[in-house]
């Protein structure tokens, strides 16, 4: 996760409290999604950014997870995400983020 995004997430967690934040990922590959999810739960695994060694334990979802899809306006979903749902490996993305969330998130939806 790039350094500026790490900073924005860290700032938001400090300002609003971790229990009031959900990080929604849109990454296109499962490996990347897992690293992002790890970064906002356990800390930056690359030790390059400000979340290195900072386990925020935030609640994290991939935008393609069923919980979010059910909560979304179906027309908006179709307009913004329907195409990518056909293109991406949804199951692998969902599994990667869910695994990290279930193991390391301190907060839930």
């Amino acid at each position: 996760m790039d350094l500026e995004n790490q900073q924005r997430i860290k700032d938001a967690a400090e300002k609003y409290g971790g229990e009031n934040i959900v990080v929604v990922l849109g990454s296109s590959d499962p490996e990347g999604a897992e690293i992002y999810a790890e970064t906002v739960t356990m800390g930056d695994p690359t030790f390059a950014g400000c979340l290195a060694g900072v386990p925020l334990g935030l609640c994290v979802y991939h935008v393609l997870e069923p919980e979010l899809k059910e909560a979304a306006d179906p027309a908006k979903w179709e307009e913004q995400i329907g195409m990518m749902e056909m293109v991406l490996k949804v199951d692998a993305l969902v599994a990667a983020v869910r695994k990290m969330r279930e193991a390391n998130s301190k907060f839930s939806l």
Partner: peptide, 13 residues
């Protein structure tokens, strides 16, 4: 390849 899949998926939609 990702771009081609997106164009194809758009064609489906």
């Amino acid at each position: 390849e990702a771009n081609y899949k997106m164009i194809a998926a758009l064609a489906v939609m």
